[in-house]
Lab assay of single mutants.
Amino acid sequence: PREAYIVTIEKGKPGQTVTWYQLRADHPKPDSLISEHPTAQEAMDAKKRYED
């Protein structure tokens, strides 16, 4: 089974940042970016789909 994890990042100019959620996995390479999402819920949904 595949495993993934969610990383929170800040995008934008200082003082005007927006939080994004990255879905990452250690396949095919360590810390590979799988997808980016504007909400934590979307990231969790993507994580479930990826791991299923």
Rank of each mutant, 00 (worst) to 15 (best):
E10K: 11
T39D: 05
Q16Y: 11
D52H: 12
S32A: 07
V18N: 08
E10I: 12
W20D: 02
P14Q: 11
P1T: 13
E42H: 05
E42Y: 03
Y5R: 14
A40L: 15
S32F: 12
E51T: 08
Y21E: 01
T39N: 10
W20S: 05
T19P: 08
T8L: 12
E51L: 11
G12D: 04
I34S: 00
K47L: 13
I34M: 03
K13H: 13
E36P: 00
H37R: 00
H37S: 01
P38I: 10
A25C: 14
L33N: 02
P30N: 07
M44Y: 12
R2V: 11
Y21W: 15
T8E: 14
E42N: 04
T39G: 03
D31E: 09
R2A: 09
K47M: 10
P28Y: 07
E51R: 06
L33H: 03
E36Y: 03
M44A: 12
P14F: 10
E10H: 11
D52V: 11
P1C: 13
Y5A: 02
A4H: 06
W20H: 05
I34K: 04
K48E: 09
H37P: 00
I34V: 09
A40S: 09
A46Q: 03
P28M: 07
R49S: 09
H27F: 15
R2M: 10
Q16T: 09
T19E: 07
Q41F: 07
Y5W: 15
T17P: 07
A25D: 04
M44F: 12
W20F: 08
L33E: 02
P1A: 13
L23W: 01
A43M: 01
R24G: 01
S35P: 00
A40R: 15
K29Q: 13
V18K: 14
E51Q: 12
E3W: 15
M44H: 10
L23A: 01
P28R: 08
A46M: 04
G12P: 03
G12E: 04
E42L: 09
V7N: 04
P28A: 07
I9C: 09
I6L: 05
Y5L: 03
P28S: 06
K47C: 06
Q41M: 10
R49C: 09
K48Y: 08
L23G: 00
T8Y: 06
P28K: 08
Y5E: 02
K48C: 08
W20Q: 03
T19W: 07
T17C: 09
K13N: 12
E10S: 10
I6P: 00
S32P: 02
K11I: 08
H37Q: 01
Q41P: 06
E51N: 09
E3P: 10
D45M: 11
A46T: 02
I6G: 00
E51A: 08
H27E: 12
